[in-house]
Amino acid sequence: MKIDDIVSKNFSNIFEPKLLQEICKYGILKNAESRKTILEIRREIQFIPFIVAGIAKVKRRDGTGNGIFLHYLIENQTSAISVTYAQEHKKSEIRIKTEGNVTYIAVPVKVVNSWFSKYESWRNYYFKLNQKQTSILIEKINDIAFNNLEYRLLKYLEETSIVKNDNVIYRKHFDIARDLKVSREAVSRILKKMEKEEVLTLGRNKIILN
């Protein structure tokens, strides 16, 4: 499918015609395999990725192997955080990595920044997306501060299940621990407890929500 058809299919009910034309003119359609980094920390942001198929994961990392999962990006979304960094000419402080195969449109930062003064539909889209993603981040902070790990782990699994539309989650305990910034042993212990309570079923590198 050509970029014109994809843009029309995904964004015609969101953006005005002239903005759609700019996305087609300046955007580059890209395909990324699973676990491919689209945007890296401490790098200049050259383009803004708009997801048109698949799921990407947004993480905050400190550059020494430590990080925490923030939220997912799904079809017709981009990262409001990356747009904000680009507006302020700052390097990225997040990593965007694919979950499975992902198709996205990469639009140069200079072009995206110009949309704020030209298109009301873009401003509305950005502010709504920013509000939604900010709310998710505030909720994450509340969970870390006020809820125990079992609650956070179950919420993480349920969120992943909803986004992927599948009650089978293919993920290692180690990867879950990295996303939640806790020890693998703690994750394994709580998952076994949940299995005994028949909340889920554990398999080899997969978790089935009952």
Rank of each mutant, 00 (worst) to 15 (best):
F11K: 02
F11P: 07
F11C: 00
N13S: 14
N13L: 12
F15P: 05
E16Y: 01
P17R: 14
K18N: 13
K18I: 06
L19S: 01
L19H: 14
Q21E: 15
I23C: 05
K25F: 15
K25G: 02
K25D: 14
Y26V: 07
G27N: 12
L29D: 00
L29F: 10
K30M: 09
K30D: 04
N31D: 11
A32S: 13
E33L: 04
E33N: 13
R35D: 14
R35W: 05
R35G: 00
K36S: 09
T37I: 11
T37H: 08
I38F: 14
L39R: 08
E40Q: 08
I41Y: 07
I41N: 10
I41T: 11
I41D: 08
R42E: 10
R43H: 15
E44V: 09
F47W: 03
P49C: 08
F50Y: 12
I51P: 02
V52R: 13
V52Q: 10
V52Y: 13
A53D: 13
A53S: 15
A53P: 01
G54E: 02
G54W: 01
I55R: 02
V58G: 02
V58N: 03
V58E: 06
V58K: 08
R61Q: 15
R61L: 15
D62T: 03
D62R: 02
G63P: 11
G63D: 13
G63F: 14
T64W: 11
G65Q: 06
N66I: 13
N66A: 08
G67D: 11
I68G: 08
F69C: 02
F69A: 10
F69S: 07
L70K: 14
L70N: 09
H71T: 06
H71P: 07
Y72S: 10
L73C: 01
L73S: 03
I74Q: 07
E75L: 04
E75F: 04
E75A: 10
Q77W: 05
Q77N: 12
Q77D: 06
Q77Y: 07
Q77I: 06
T78G: 04
T78I: 04
T78Y: 09
T78D: 00
S79W: 05
S79F: 03
S79V: 09
A80N: 03
A80K: 11
A80R: 04
I81M: 00
I81D: 05
I81Y: 02
V83M: 04
Y85C: 02
Y85A: 01
Y85L: 05
A86L: 11
A86E: 08
A86F: 09
A86H: 03
Q87H: 14
E88S: 02
E88D: 01
K90E: 02
K91S: 05
K91M: 08
K91N: 13
S92N: 13
E93K: 07
E93N: 05
E93M: 07
R95C: 12
I96E: 06
I96P: 09
K97E: 15
E99Y: 12
E99F: 07
N101K: 15
T103G: 00
T103V: 11
Y104F: 15
Y104T: 00
I105N: 05
I105T: 01
A106N: 05
A106Q: 10
V107S: 12
V107R: 11
